[in-house]
Amino acid sequence: MNGMRRMSALAVAATLVLAACSANATPSPAPTNPPAPTTAATVNCVSGSITEAGSTALQPLIQDAATAYQSACPGATITVNGGGSGTGLGQVDGGSVQIGASDVLANTKLATPDADTLVDHVVCRQGWIVVTNLDVTGITNLTTQQNIDIWTGTDTNWSQVGGPNIPIVLIFRPQSSGTRATFLRLVLGGATEATGGQTLTEDSNGAVTTAVTKTNGAVSVIGFSYYNDPANKPLLNGLQLDGVSATIANVGNGTYKLAADGNLYTKGTATGLTAAFLDFMMGPEVQGTIIPKDSYGPVSMQ
């Protein structure tokens, strides 16, 4: 009797698990985002299902664009994954995803024969901002030279760059991260970064933001889209670079230098739903509405 009851409990649990899984697997049109009637007519709808993986810096934009495309075209399923720029490049090269997102160019990660088979689609401009903990008061700007002194470990106290007497804590992204590579190239000019006791490494924009807000004297670099998130902005002290404010407008006019293209890669020429979605990324809804909303810059700024 007891055994029977146990068995039936197991069966009920198994059914619940299965139901939960299949509910997830069924691509349901998002009911909270009804298709915008004005743009639906202009979207080239192709049915099918594709997967994107790669850069977490680009993920918020691609997620929003995919949601908008799927609302307009209920027959299309676009799965958006993170994983990092290297994952995106490796998986699109291996054929397990149709689109690989990367902050850096393919030839910096892949060997030449592989990199040459990938086609680059620049879909946006993205910028990064140097942020500090709120206790670093009195500093609103760092010059390129000050950044080099700080990030190479020459300056170890905020008082050396005109701030309060607090030790500097450097919060890096991993060396393999696209964000770190871009900052190293554009601002530090390839200088050797500091290591040791005053340096921490966190592996995502979210983890970096948490660490900066919780650590006295912390400084790091995050994407505009994370900095402009209303949940993060009041907790961070965002700095100018060489006297130029970190805004999309300044990325566009070329005065703010910590910015790069957002690249989506396909293996060979894109076809079917992949091509239609990439067209949609370049279309007015994404370039004109979604990109400014998520704090990226449109391609026309290049």
Binding site: G84, G86, T87, L89, G90, K109, P174, S177
Partner: peptide, 14 residues
């Protein structure tokens, strides 16, 4: 865990 997502299968780093 820090580096696996940002490196590519087959490169010396990975």
């Amino acid at each position: 865990t820090l580096d696996m997502g940002n490196t590519v299968f087959g490169e010396p780093w990975q």
